[in-house]
Write a protein that binds this DNA or RNA. Sequence first.
DNA 1: CTTGATTTGTTTACATCGTAAATATACAGT
DNA 2: ACTGTATATTTACGATGTAAACAAATCAAG
Lengths: 201, 201
Amino acid sequence: MPRSLSAEQVEDFRARLCEVAQHRFATQGRDAVTMRQLADALGCSPMTPYRYFRNKDEILAAVRTAAFDRFAAALEEAAAHARGDLRAAGQAVGQAYVRFALDDPDAYRLMFDVAQPDPERYPELGRASTRARRTMSAALEALVRAGVFHGDPELLGLAFWSAMHGLVMLHLAGKLPADRAFETVRAELMRLLVTGARSAV
Amino acid sequence: MPRSLSAEQVEDFRARLCEVAQHRFATQGRDAVTMRQLADALGCSPMTPYRYFRNKDEILAAVRTAAFDRFAAALEEAAAHARGDLRAAGQAVGQAYVRFALDDPDAYRLMFDVAQPDPERYPELGRASTRARRTMSAALEALVRAGVFHGDPELLGLAFWSAMHGLVMLHLAGKLPADRAFETVRAELMRLLVTGARSAV
DNA sequence: CTTGATTTGTTTACATCGTAAATATACAGT
DNA sequence: ACTGTATATTTACGATGTAAACAAATCAAG
């Protein structure tokens, strides 16, 4: 038992705990995952996590924050990758959004679950959430400024976001007919929205 | 203590319990509502509900089923009310959808929460869910058959549904900027989708 | 090196949860 | 009046989150 933990060791433990907790939180729900089972998976006593997090909700908030940061990073990378072509950048961000949701449904569920914690209580979570949001809207606003789309950029951004979010949520909730359906509906949705957005207000 | 309960008395108790449980389930989450506090609210002992439901999850399923049935009834009424004009009927169903979500957000949350129970386990819940779904798509298919919209009716239905669902979910999760924003984004979303759907495939 | 303070981790303890089992209560049929 | 049965309550148990007490290991100061 060393006298004091380095910042790195602390971060290590927190990361390990979050990794173990994420899948359980997203699939079983907050209360189905117990501190005792997390401790088992980590090979420590049930009270040890309390040295690194105030309580269970703070663990959940940390898992959410990590998910938002990965999400934001994915979007930012997609935007940066096609920096030259505005149209390509917009598409890339949209694709990155959907890919993230499909590749890491647990993270997506946690990020946009209806039961949102008080943002005042977890400022880091709010920061990560805002970071992701900014990248999303930036891509769309660029398309409007470039004259590809017409209308209020923020409004268009919210409309596109709503549509994609709804599609992903229905998919994750198992409300879409078959597995192939997702890509089909996505393409149709984009066709409708892009057609509408190209036309003048 | 009467010897035996009439079917009506049984249904009364179940309905009273569901009414008390709905708001708590949707706002606090399944595990934040306890059998003991439900019993307090009903003025009975904590074990009495177990005469009417197998367990807590069956109560939650019943609450969900009731929500779906009210939702379906609202949509059906809107559709029936404007039976003559297909375009008006389509709009009425869309409006009823949104109105229900805003008037009874608890019910909406419960219906479309990501943590969906096994549909095999609660057949009544599946039936109610299908009933609501059918009314939604019927309105849109009518618009396509009437030549107002063009494309695969089922596909268009899923696209419209995704968009509205996403909008409502973002709103309920508090992700939309202001309160006035909802109606503005809804109108914009409809403008985009309708413009797209009017154009040929 | 010794000692005491401090930091880390575990053990114990407790209120609360869902609900099974045992128990009480009051009616219906004889 | 008596008994069986449907209804409701009381009691009891294992599991949960976590506060409090405790143990152990290190570093600072002498």
